[in-house]
Amino acid sequence: MSLRPDLAVIAANVAPGSRVLDIGCGDGELMAALRDKKGVDARGLELDADDVASAVARGLSVVQGDADTDLAGYPDNSFDYAILSQTLQTTRAPDVVLEHLLRIGRHAFVSFPNFAHWRVRASLLWGGRMPVTRLLPVAWYATPNIHHVTIDDFRALLKERGITVEGAWFLSGDQRTSATMANLLAEHAVFLLRR
């Protein structure tokens, strides 16, 4: 079983034996991989009850909860890494969630779909329609993505909040792409951050 590309990037860069909180962990695919391959002590937070049940059934410690409301209950520096994959753009207050990640974890991985990818731009510019693409597969009225963000937007927020970038990876499809013109060419970004 191979991990989703952004998860594979995260899995490859988490230190063995570390403590990880995976926020929006789904059915625990990444957590299970980290536990089995890297001896990571992984905990999860997930909104969907079915996913939580699946994760618990594979022996993972996952709490049903909402990144917007339940991160406040986690103590400072209680994890080596806080991971938020493909979830930032679905939160009500992404900046607050980001601050929580960097409070709870010594490092934070954040991955999100880049809304400035050329396909998205083309859809808006030439089609005049909200994009429905591989990474944004749902129509505007049904999408869980309520805070669309671009790579440049995200970098601007990091700068404004004084957050340090320790690593950045850019993906197009299943392939890594270069940092050059990532805001145009990357479908998908993964950042490793610290305070």
């Binding site: 905990r43 939580v52 049940a53 618990v56 993972l60 410690s61 996952v62 709490v63 909860g65």
Partner: peptide
């Protein structure tokens, strides 16, 4: 810091 799972059914 305890290992906990929780779900509301």
């Amino acid at each position: 810091g305890a290992a906990v799972s929780f779900v509301e059914l």
